[in-house]
Each structure stands twice: as structure tokens, then as C-alpha cells.
Design a protein around this nucleic acid. Structure first.
Lengths: 338, 338
DNA sequence: TTGTATGCGTTATCAG
DNA sequence: CTGATAACGCATACAA
């Protein structure tokens, strides 16, 4: 039953008009320093906080940032599990510093997500959206762009279309797999394979490119050393077995995900003496830490912070400026597996 | 640039007063059926949606449910990673059906979480809170209770104090470890150990109790077969080694978490021939699925739905009724490890 | 610098 | 069943 203390209560207690209170808060430079301090003190004493609802009616800003949450069960190419969790935490924390709050929504696919945009925009009116799991020709991005709604994507727009000109934050996946590959090269490996996803997924192609880059630089063979399968432990195992059967000289595998890497690791155990095959994964999930898998770690908290920064800029500045991008560098967590 | 269509636009287009529109929406029984249908049709055609901010000003209800999100890095006894992720997804989905939205906040400890309650209550005014990671003498619960603020805890109040009388939803952890133990008994194991957390954690004690129950029923020895360590893979390994050294006759281990179980599994590999030790975990995390670990699965989506149901009841009914509880049964996911 | 008036979109109250 | 009026709390343009 916390009786809500309004701006009028503060004005009364401070012996000023409610305008002065509002000014002390929103336009500090327009109030005498002494008055301002007094008002702020009363605000503190009374525990006054501006009502968001009232403020929103007046300003049209909800201070809400909406983001989709995927089911924990990794169904598609969305981020979920620890990755989303960590990202969300960072987003919530950074947003709070700017007075913003994170609101969640779910959606089965892009179409229903857009429907949710409309629903949200009509009711809660979030100030901005954070898009995850971006992909080629993302209709969500173009929809938001067309309506000039503020948003930032965690993930590059994997397209060169003008539709794709919007702020985004991403982690340089190619740099990650390249670092992993270089690490293996430094350890003396010469025939290093790659297990990734079928072409066309943007993220997957990027990760493959990093490996290919490092291999090409060493003028090592690459063509026959790459496999493309859907994500999953089983598939990783199959691909690893297939690759090793085709070329027994392979001593190391760079994988596009921890799942694939784990499968490869298991397969290696049943093929060779334990430890004879070096394997690296991607995302540094708890699984990787658990089994001692060397993995590429994404700076998720930093990515989240960057998203908020970009949004704040687009939201606070008068006319939203051009597109801005942030590409973060991942780091390699070296463990027993490689 | 979506022109916001207000209730007045609808009223004009439908040829009625704005009150009739409001009534058609909020008190359907007070409007003639024909009028109601016409209004609803216009609403649909115009894509009208009631402004939450305006509604909140009038009704005092924000239709916001706040919940804390922990860092992805499992630091304490909070839920995080896939568990929180799945729970959040379920919560968001179920809440949306009732017109509610989930809002996130972070907090380092109980004290700062309460400070966040105050801040949120003064600004965004969430209608309710969902508490996670409840523990003995939870000051958050008593704080909310004292102010008669609607909330539900995901996790029992591990205390009999009157302070602890509030709605909660939980999963029967003891039933889970008991089922795991019975499963091992049915497989012929007779000396079954338990690796859990230090006493006093509620959740941990509960899980240990399930194992003890099944063991006692078979009149099997228990005292020397239990170990208590902080959560973690390393600790699980140490505990398993210690336990097996003390009693080489042990053929199976029930663990309070997947992390402990994983450690035990690794330790077993280096002690015995692979597969000779049966191990079960708890939470059915991706790690468990990855390594084929038998684990107890919590019905998280159902738990989330139950939370929303309890909240909706407390929110929609006039005087909030007494405490209500929901205790869900977990299920055992049997895999190679046991 | 401070006070006064107005509107944001809804819903509740109360006459018609 | 319908239509006018008030009020929720805040911020802004304006006048004092």
C-alpha cells in the first residue's frame, strides 16, 4: 500500500510550485542552484519518483526496450541458453543505467514477430527493439526501417541491400575461428579440418571464412578438409568421422559451434587414442567449460552495452543519425582439447 | 511514423461516443450486441489498440510483471543459463496471453533487489514480481508481503515462519532424486551414493532427502555414502573420488546437479573402466544431453505458467486470496550414464 | 526564476 | 444503452 508520492507532494513539502520541481529535474539549468538542491533533497526524503505512465503520456517515450526471447530448447539459429542469458543480463544492466528497462516478447518466426511489433507499438509503445538472430533478407529489419522505428540488431545484416542499412552490433566470428586455427597451427598442426553449417547462414559462412583465411595463408590444403552439417552433437560426430576417414592425416578440427565440437570430440575418442585429435568449438558454453573444450568466447556483456549505446544515441539525439556499427573481437579460451 | 489511432478515432469512425467504445471493450455486457460488434469491427479495421500508459494512469495497473535476471555465469544458487532461459520464455508466453508483459531487472543481492523494487514501484509500477532463487528467511518475500504487493516465488519458502506465507510454485526436487535412485535400484545397483551441496540450502537438502528416502526404504546403508560440496565440476570429481576411495563397492551416484554429475562422470572414467559407474544429474541441462547423462528434468514451462496463473488470480480477483501453492513433479531423462 | 493553464488517452461516474 | 464531465501525474508554452 505504498501511497504514491506525486510531484505535487514534493512541491508542497519544498514550498515551491510543481513547475519548479519539474524543472529542477528536467531542466536543472533553469532553476537557481539553491532551490534545485533543496528540491532534490525533498525528493530524496520523500522518495519521490516520476510516474512513467504520466511521463509517457506527455513525452511519448516509454523508456522500454523490447527484445525477443527464444525457447531454451535450441530449435533454430536463434541465440538461446547461456548466450542469450548473458546478453540479456548485460542489456538489462546497461539499459538500467540509462533509465531504460528491458521488456520481453516471444515469437515463432519473423512474421509473427512483426505482428508482435505492431501489437507492442500500439499498447506498451517500446522506444526501441533489439533484434537477434539476424539473417539474409531479414524482413523484420526492413519493416522497422520502413517505419523509421529505432532498433539495433545483435548480428550483422547479412546482405548488402539498402534494406540492411541500420545500426548493428556483432562479434567477428571469422576472427574467432581464425584465431582458433592459428592457435592450432602454432601448436604444430598442419592438416586442420573445419566442421560448420550448410552455406547461406551468414554466421556460419563467416566462421568458416576465418578458418579458410588462416589455412590459405599457410598455403595448406583446404578443399577436402571442410564439412557442412546442421548443428548438433550427433552431426558433429558424423562429420568428424567422415572427415577423418577421408583424410587420416587430419590432426585438428575447428568447429562452428560447441555442439559440433563436442560431437567431434566424442568421435575422436572412439577413433584414436584419447587426446590425439585437437578440437575447438565456438561460444564458450558451459558444455565447453565442462569438458575442457577450447572455444571462442563472445564478449556478450560488451555487445549488450554497445547495443544500448547505439540505441541511446538514436533515441536521445534529435534526428537519428546514420547507421552505426560495432564489431567486437572474440577471444579464444584455450583448454585441454586443443 | 505510425499515426496513433486513439479511442476517439474509433468512436468517430463508428459513429458512437468514445464511452461506448471503451464499454464495448471493457464492459461488453453493457453494450448492445449489434453496437458492440460494429465497434469491434471498426477497431479491427483501424488497428486500434488501447494505450497502456493512458490506461495505467486511469486504472493504476501497468500489466507489467518484473523478474530478476542473473548473470549467465552461474555464480550462486540463482537459476541461470538454460533453466532461467526456458523459464523466462514460458513466463513471457503465458503472461502475454493474459495481456501482461515481462520486464527484467538485475540485482547483486537481496538488499539491492529490494532497492530495485522501490525504484520500479515508483516509476514503472509493475503489477507483480516473480521471485527466483528463494532461500531461508528471504527478506525479499517478507518485504513484499509487508507491503501487500502481489508476487509469486518460483521456489518454496524454505521456512515455516509466518513471513513465508505467500504464493509459490516449485518443482519437487526430492521426488526427482528419489526417482533417480529408484531407477538405479531397479537397474540392480545396491550401494548408491549421493553428492550434493552443503546443508542449509533448502533446494540442496530437498534433493538429498529424496535419495535418502529411497535408500532408507530399501534398508540400505546411507551414512557414509553422502558427500556435500559446493557446486561445480571439479568439486563433483573430488567428491566422487573421495566417496569411491572410502567405499569401492559403490556402483552408482545420484548428484544434486549436472555439474556435480559431470565431475563424477569424469572421475569415474579415470578410476574404473568406462561405464562401470552409473551417475545421474539434475536439471537436464544441455551438458547432460551432450554427454548422455541421465538427469532430472524440471517442467519449467509448466512452472512458469503456474506462476502466471497464481499472479493473475491475485491480480484480477478483488481481495487477494490466501496463499496458494503449486508443486510440480519432475521427470527422469534416462540416458547412457545410468 | 516562478506560477497558471492545457493536453496526453483512458476509464469511472453519473445523468440522460 | 448512450453521452457529457472529471481525473490520473507529468511536462510544456506562456504569462507574471
Amino acid at each position: 500500500m505504498a501511497e504514491k508520492v506525486t510531484i505535487i507532494d514534493v512541491a508542497r513539502a519544498a514550498g515551491v510550485s510543481r513547475q519548479t520541481v519539474s524543472n529542477a529535474l528536467n531542466s536543472p539549468e533553469v532553476v537557481r542552484e539553491e532551490t534545485r538542491r533543496h528540491v532534490l533533497e525533498v525528493i530524496e526524503r520523500l522518495g519521490y519518483r516520476a510516474s512513467q505512465a504520466a511521463r509517457q503520456m506527455r513525452t511519448g517515450r516509454s523508456r522500454l526496450i523490447a527484445i525477443r526471447i527464444d525457447p531454451g530448447d535450441p530449435g533454430g539459429d536463434g541465440i538461446s541458453g547461456t548466450v542469450l542469458d548473458t546478453f540479456l543480463h548485460g542489456l538489462t544492466e546497461t539499459a538500467a543505467r540509462g533509465g531504460y528497462r528491458v521488456m520481453l516478447y516471444t515469437a515463432a518466426d519473423d512474421r509473427t514477430e512483426i505482428a508482435t511489433f505492431e501489437e507492442l507499438l500500439g499498447s506498451f509503445e517500446p522506444d526501441a527493439f533489439v533484434l537477434t538472430a539476424t539473417h539474409h533478407d531479414d524482413i523484420r529489419a526492413s519493416w522497422l526501417l520502413r517505419r523509421r522505428l529505432p532498433f539495433v540488431a545483435f548480428g550483422r545484416p547479412w546482405s548488402e541491400l539498402p534494406d540492411a542499412r541500420h545500426p548493428w552490433v556483432d562479434v567477428d566470428g571469422a576472427a574467432g575461428t581464425e584465431a582458433a586455427t592459428r592457435h592450432l597451427l602454432a601448436a604444430g598442426h598442419r592438416r586442420i579440418g573445419f566442421i560448420g553449417w550448410p552455406p547461406g547462414s551468414g554466421v556460419g559462412d563467416d566462421r568458416r571464412a576465418g578458418w579458410a583465411r588462416a589455412i590459405a595463408e599457410q598455403e595448406l590444403p583446404a578443399d577436402a578438409l571442410s564439412r557442412a552439417v546442421e548443428d548438433g552433437i550427433e552431426n558433429g560426430g558424423h562429420a568428424a568421422r567422415d572427415l577423418l576417414a577421408a583424410d587420416p592425416g587430419v590432426t585438428a578440427l575447428v568447429c562452428a559451434s560447441d555442439s559440433l565440437a563436442l560431437g567431434a570430440l566424442n568421435a575422436a575418442g572412439s577413433l584414436n587414442a584419447a587426446g590425439s585429435l585437437a578440437v575447438t568449438g565456438f561460444d564458450d558454453t558451459p558444455v565447453a567449460r565442462a569438458v575442457g573444450l577450447t572455444s571462442v568466447r563472445q564478449p556478450l556483456a560488451e555487445a549488450a552495452a554497445a547495443c544500448v549505446t547505439l540505441l541511446a544515441r538514436a533515441l536521445d539525439d534529435s534526428e537519428s543519425p546514420a547507421e552505426e556499427h560495432v564489431l567486437l573481437q572474440p577471444s579464444l579460451m584455450v583448454r585441454r582439447s586443443g
